[in-house]
Design a protein around this nucleic acid. Structure first.
Lengths: 177, 177
DNA sequence: TGCTGTCTATGCGCGACGCATATAATTTCG
DNA sequence: CGAAATTATATGCGTCGCGCATAGACAGCA
């Protein structure tokens, strides 16, 4: 009977992800991927709708409409892309930046609260094991953006996701986590 | 700079939950909470729509319509409740039971694959820390059902969620994970 | 120049959601 | 006991997001 580990891990990741997504959604204009879109635009200003679409795992019309709504809400601005005149360069407005701060802060607080039961040694052990898991978990660049879509890039020095991708094939994600 | 632990844990739980939910959805007639409803009805046969609604965090009409669709698909059967003639006792049909097997198996495989990078000692350490986290994480019975909604009850002896709730206040969840 | 692939945008139908409400059964309390 | 408040289920209805199919603009290559 060693399926218990998988069950416990499954329950933990589901419960924590639920909580984080709920918190994040509460600080975005709508539930769903809006908060993730905002957070992604912080680490990748100028990102394209197509890149966003792949990171969020949605259809293209879905991504266009999501950006429409975020633009109407005044959180995201479409700018012409200089390199490719077909593409749109997405940027956070000031309001979008503030919304992003709220999203990242609430996410951090929620996870930190869950980790409060650990003493410093347990915390460090858990971090190392989580990093090992995460390093092997990420499949490619699109997946990396998806996994790290709510991360605070500035707080993640030597992000294991980025490091893993770089060491694996030298692909060039500018910053994925 | 000790926010990194929260970032790594956040990325891990988000990525793994995404993967598990996607796998589960692929073995249910629709995305969303359908797979969770099916799995919940395995550990709690006779469950009520209202209980389901709370565990899945949806509106009541939403739960009624979800059960409608699952009934049309032949996976769930509404039976009259003997204790309370207002209520409906929900049960899995044979097809629903098979669907549940597929959901739980795919979930198990996905998590097991992620854990393959661990040697036995790391695996055991991670399990203990995850259990500690989970024990402190669960808030009440409804939350427990939500967190454990995709668990395989039969594989989770001494489920830390159930144990935590029982030891905390002697509430009587018959089996929550 | 012309052809193919890529990026964005939109018309359209479908389906899920949730509010408000209706009905039935249970519980509470005078 | 019997009326009121509570709880469980069901449904009409409007709204909204989604994704398919398509159209238009541009890039890159022959």
């Amino acid at each position: 009977m060693e399926k218990k580990t998988e069950n416990v891990v499954g329950a933990l990741v589901l419960g924590l992800a639920d909580a984080v997504l709920d918190e994040a959604g509460n600080h975005a204009p709508e539930k769903g991927q809006a908060a993730a879109a905002i957070a992604l635009l912080r680490h990748e200003p100028g990102m394209t709708i197509e890149q966003l679409r792949r990171a969020l795992g949605m259809s293209h019309p879905g991504a266009v409409r999501l950006v429409d709504r975020l633009a109407v809400d005044g959180l995201v601005a479409r700018r012409p892309s200089v390199a490719d005149k077909r593409a749109v360069a997405l940027h956070l407005t000031e309001a979008g930046d503030e919304s992003c701060n709220a999203i990242l802060a609430s996410r951090y607080r929620r996870i930190a609260r869950a980790l409060e039961v650990f003493d410093p040694h347990e915390r460090e052990t858990f971090r190392l094991l989580a990093e090992k898991l995460l390093t092997a978990f990420v499949e490619d660049v699109d997946h990396a953006y998806s996994v790290c879509r709510l991360c605070d890039t500035s707080a993640c020095v030597d992000c294991p996701v980025t490091c893993s991708l770089l060491s694996r094939q030298g692909g060039a994600p500018t910053a994925a986590g």
